[in-house]
Amino acid sequence: MKEYGQSILWLAYSYVKDKNLAEEITQDVFIICYKKMETFREESSIKTWIYRITTNRCKDVMKSKSYKYKKMTQSLFDHFVSKDDTPEDFLIRKTDEKELSLAVLTLPLKYREIIFLFYFENLKVEDISRLLSVKPNTVKTRLHRGRELIKQMYERGVGDGR
């Protein structure tokens, strides 16, 4: 939990966009991992195995009747703020991070999950491929298209009041 807890929370949040629900999913994931540790076959890294359980749990929650898609209540990047910043630096970085996080979170799920795993979790294309059970070329294509969608959002001025 110490090693992967925050990453799992972020991954869950990128799916459900609700902090409390993401925390519940994170707890569920570690309970599942504890109960199923003997089924881990070491065909992949433990990190990939835990991420796979997390994505499956998130998808299950999103399919459930009780799940309601909620608005983002907190920036994905809150913990990146440096205490050495001037108030101006803080405001500029907060605005940029919020715009980027909103852009990523508005992507369709198939692009959002790839962008998140590649950039925020630093997973390799091969690991993402195994995690999501898709071909490596599919990962590369979705990564490219996700980047293009974000670029188009910025070109249209999404998030800057235009």
Rank of each mutant, 00 (worst) to 15 (best):
R57A: 04
K35P: 08
A22Q: 04
T141C: 10
I8Y: 01
R145E: 15
A12P: 13
K47W: 08
V81Q: 00
T73D: 10
D84R: 03
T141E: 13
I50S: 04
R142G: 13
L109I: 14
Y13G: 00
L123C: 12
K70N: 06
R41L: 00
G157W: 09
K94L: 02
L117A: 06
V61E: 03
Y69N: 14
G161T: 14
V104Q: 00
G161A: 15
T106R: 04
I150V: 15
K98T: 13
T55C: 09
K151N: 06
D18H: 08
P136W: 01
V104W: 03
R145V: 15
E42W: 07
K83A: 02
V61M: 11
N122A: 04
L109S: 08
K47C: 05
L102Q: 07
V134E: 01
V104P: 02
G146Y: 05
V16E: 07
L11V: 05
P108C: 11
L91E: 06
L102V: 03
C58E: 00
Y34R: 15
N122G: 11
E24N: 12
L117I: 09
I92Y: 12
V81C: 06
R162W: 15
F77R: 05
E113M: 11
K124D: 12
I128H: 03
Y67N: 12
Y51C: 08
E42Q: 14
T39N: 08
R162F: 11
T54N: 01
F90D: 00
K63N: 06
G157D: 05
M62W: 01
L21Y: 10
E97R: 11
S75V: 06
